[in-house]
Amino acid sequence: MSSLDDLYREVILDHYRSPRNRGELPAPPAVRTEGFNPLCGDEVVVYLQVNDEGTIDAIAIGGQGCSISQSSASMMSAAVKGKTVAEARQLIRAFKGLMSIHEGEIGGDGSEAEQGIAAEAETATVALGDLEALKGVVKFPVRIKCATLSWNTLDQALTEADSQD
């Protein structure tokens, strides 16, 4: 199953089997947002706590789903914890760039391809670390939505946290 190894990299399986920051936070003060993939039933719940300095000082992940959606959520939580809201947003753009550049290549619609070009510049300047392991997902286009689910949910959580201030 060698081509599958491009999708299911060891670090992905590790995060799937031992998810980081799994659990709940009391909301409020944390914000709680849910994301669904209606096609396959994947579900991600993000609990996010932003302090007065605009830093994410706590994050927890709930929900259930496939290895790609759950490992992406786990890696996302580890990557944004301790970051500022601005840094987290930058990371979201960079990660979506990693996914959407390739969406453009495999024939995604024009607007996404254009966003992809903008995000490509972002990707080049932000270190994605472990998240690079999810790059293989783009070879399996139906799974891209699994990988981006938690990031879209985080995006929503950041917006809600902003509006709480």
């Binding site: 199953m1 081509s3 599958l4 999708l7 299911y8 096609l39 396959c40 039933g41 994947d42 789903g65 496939c66 290895s67 790609i68 759950q70 399996f140 799974r143 699994c146």
Partner: peptide, 21 residues
């Protein structure tokens, strides 16, 4: 193993199954 992952892995063996609700 999540159904979505099963369907993906099975596809590599030419096996077409449905995952979901």
């Amino acid at each position: 193993v999540h159904p979505h992952d099963i369907a993906q892995v099975l596809d590599q063996s030419g096996v077409c199954v449905r995952a979901g609700h």
